[in-house]
Amino acid sequence: MGTLVFLCLGPLLWAVQLTLIYGPQSSLCAYGIGTGQGGSNLLVAGLILIVSALCMGLAAAALLRPGAAYELATGTRPSGETWPFLTWVMRALAALSLLAMLYAGLGALLLPACAQLR
């Protein structure tokens, strides 16, 4: 189980990022907390950027230090003949997730946070 978590660290962080940006964004916008002119909301935009940076930082760390990430996820040291394969897959997934997280965060820079825009 721990190994599977290790393998999927990147996409898991992506899931955390999506939850943490979509949840607060829709609730804060629904209540109109912090919403200003034209549906812009600096609180929400800031939150999205901070969460994105944080999750991307963690994914990048896992990408660079897979051994440490493995110990964190499983509590044991990496071993076995499958280790090179697992590391490779984990790092490639982390790289793809970095791109996905970048995409998700991008909207906050280009669009007002709470406007319907129709």
Binding site: Q25, S26, V44, L96, A100, G107, L111, A115, Q116
Partner: peptide
């Protein structure tokens, strides 16, 4: 459905990301 454009942008982004695999 008329939910805020930025919410749509998150999911548009994921739709792009899923095309790469």
């Amino acid at each position: 459905t008329g939910i805020p454009a930025l919410s749509l942008a998150f999911f548009s982004a994921a739709s792009m990301a899923v095309a790469i695999p």
